[in-house]
Design a protein around this nucleic acid. Structure first.
Ligand SMILES: [Mn+2]
Ligand SMILES: [Mn+2]
Ligand SMILES: [Zn+2]
Ligand SMILES: [Zn+2]
Lengths: 142, 142
DNA sequence: CGGTAATCTGGACTGAGTCCAAATCGCGAT
DNA sequence: ATCGCGATTTGGACTCAGTCCAGATTACCG
């Protein structure tokens, strides 16, 4: 199970023209174990906790590679804050201005409808939708 | 003209429950003069160039206030990169991964399903859409 | 005009993200 | 299996946008 998981990941990395290296598989495994939205440093800490010693820089490198291979999704949550999550159903994010919570927001039309701007700007590779506001919990306690 | 501009801005700040202070009006004036998408530090530099001495922190404070008053728009362009622009027609942005260019993308008002989440997450105050890819110029020279 | 709370200031600080050159490793070719 | 080379990792230092704080100022109300 763990092995088939790593084998599949390796295959997908190579499909993307990337090498299936130790750090990349380690990061992916850690992310699957931790789940949810994680910052690069949280992933790093998670690895250390499991006695998987890996330089912080390598985590950044691995995340970039995994992201470009489509194995993890990247979400820019605000200045100086980015989170990663294992790639699943495409969705958007809601960020609470008060508590910083990040909530998943299903994409209304399914697929990636937002990938098509109304004007010709170039090759659009991804569209990120971020809702900002106050989450239900914070709104309640105010 | 310059005076009516400042008077209007003052009024709009007060409408938003904010004080019409020197730094805020100075920043807004500088942004109008410079135009386009500007980082906080570019605004700061622009002010210095006009012999308007203002601490960097104050520019950040002013931009936050102007943003919450709706006089300038804020766009999160990537980790550690945010740009501001004088508020006009609401629109989205395309960011080129190669050259970093930021292009305006008109918002097909109402046409984009993603602008309204279809689950209850809380009070949504804004939805930001960021397209990432390779701009036409960069695509041509490759 | 004061009084007062909002805002400004200057400076130090934080920490996510980046950069680089030497060492290592994955993998296609032999 | 083994080799060779280019992709990748590593460790460490570094950058610099953004934040934080406490004392000085200032806008605005009565
Ligand atoms: Mn998510
Ligand atoms: Mn714009
Ligand atoms: Zn919240
Ligand atoms: Zn470009």
């Amino acid at each position: 199970m763990e092995d088939t998981f790593r084998a599949e990941a390796s295959a997908r990395l190579r499909e993307a023209g990337l090498r299936a290296t130790g750090p990349r598989l380690a990061v992916l495994t850690a992310m699957r174990r931790m789940g949810g939205h994680r910052t690069a440093d949280e992933v790093h800490a998670g690895l250390i906790e499991q006695d998987v010693r890996l330089p912080r820089t390598s985590v950044y490198n691995a995340l970039a590679a995994l992201s470009s291979a489509g194995l993890v999704n990247y979400a820019d949550i605000g200045p100086g804050a980015a989170v990663y999550e294992t790639a699943g159903e495409w969705h958007h994010h809601f960020v609470c201005r008060r508590c910083g919570a990040v909530l998943d927001v299903p994409c209304a039309a399914g697929g990636k409808p937002c990938l098509t701007p109304d004007i010709e700007v170039g090759v659009v590779e991804e569209a990120q939708v971020i809702f900002r506001g106050v989450c239900a919990d914070c709104a309640a306690s105010a």
